[in-house]
Design a binder for these strands. Structure first.
Lengths: 199, 199
DNA sequence: TTAGGACATTGAACACCGTTCAGGAATGTA
DNA sequence: TACATTCCTGAACGGTGTTCAATGTCCTAA
């Protein structure tokens, strides 16, 4: 009854647009995304974008989805290569990997937090899932350090440590305010995690 | 030669616009600032804004200047009321005061970091001065904890601690991601600072 | 007092933005 | 072939910050 052999084309356009948007965000930041520019580059009309995404925020979320997965893999790899190190060293390895990813993909990384989601649109499920996966990686070394935690303590420490490292990376890469050299940032992270996870 | 008794009117318009802009940012966030709305409320033409500010970013910086001063006073007061407490407790008092200010003035506080300053415009001098003032308050207890620091160590610790607390407050107030109750955030901050500043 | 000039003020116009939607194109089915 | 359904188009809409020639205002100097 219905003409249903075009989902392939749909998905192709989706991917093309996501590719182009990702390239723009990577090199010039989220604020440089233009619907018209994207349409011209993709060889379609502006309206076609809205056939495939709800709006530009939806497109941004598609880009962020890729970034989130790459970030998760990057941190996972870093800790996997140190599977026999102490819990503290594994925490440091993850945090330094987080710093490395952010500093090598500054615009893509910032887009994860700058995307406009205040309005009715609620956070996509995979956003929370991906964040949960990241948190569970952090929680593993913490559980070794605290074999008998109070209820919710591990979760609280996980969030606290992630937020702290995130803050150091965020303000550290914001050169307009602090301009801290990258090796200094690693030193800050090592210092913090060593102290916090000391026996 | 020149007509020079209107700086009063200039300053009056500056203040009026800053007042109105501050009210908007306070209640609806930085993104809700509209040049036309402001002009209508101030009883002037849109162009008049540009006689008094370089652009809307300049106006935002004026609002942020006020916020920065209030934030500094808030943190100063908090630590002044605990002048005889231990260095660690004073660090905690400052951090909790920072959290309190951010949670009671969420939009004004976010505007401090969301303002667009990437383009040619360089950071105003008072921005760095105010930040330096805040850092020096944090550094005082740290110097007591480390009487013989290596060169630059105090500065590094100051930035690390500020960034960490900032990260906890930032992600903690971002309800879309974490939604941590405020007393839990205080717990996280206490935990972090206690561990980091332990002897 | 008056003519001149240096500013302030105005608001229409400009360039740009994301988003919409009536109409044409394309492709399936009967 | 006739129809139904979807896709695609791009001009148009309402919004944004910013500009600038024209006008107004007011002090200074003659």
């Amino acid at each position: 009854m219905m003409a249903r052999d075009t989902p392939q084309k749909r998905d192709a356009l989706r991917e093309t647009l996501t590719d182009l948007a990702e390239a723009h965000v990577r090199s010039d930041g989220l604020a440089s995304l233009r619907a018209r520019t994207l349409a011209k580059e993709a060889g379609c009309a502006v309206g076609a974008i809205y056939n495939v995404f709800d709006d530009m925020t939806g497109l941004t979320l598609a880009v962020n989805g890729r970034t989130f997965r790459r970030l998760g893999a990057h941190v996972s790899d870093a800790v996997a290569q140190k599977s026999d190190a102490s819990p503290t060293d594994r925490l440091i390895a993850m945090a330094v990997a987080y710093l490395g990813f952010a500093s090598e993909n500054p615009h893509l990384w910032r887009s994860l937090f700058d995307v406009e989601m205040s309005n009715d649109r609620d956070v996509p499920a995979w956003y929370l899932e991906e964040l949960g996966r990241l948190f569970s990686i952090i929680a593993a070394p913490l559980k070794e350090l605290h074999p008998n935690p109070a209820p919710g303590e591990i979760d609280l420490m996980t969030r606290a440590l992630f937020s702290s490292v995130h803050g150091i990376v965020l303000l550290g890469l914001e050169n307009r305010i602090s301009a801290v050299p990258k090796d200094r940032l690693e030193g800050m992270i090592e210092y913090l995690l060593t102290r916090v996870s000391a026996p």
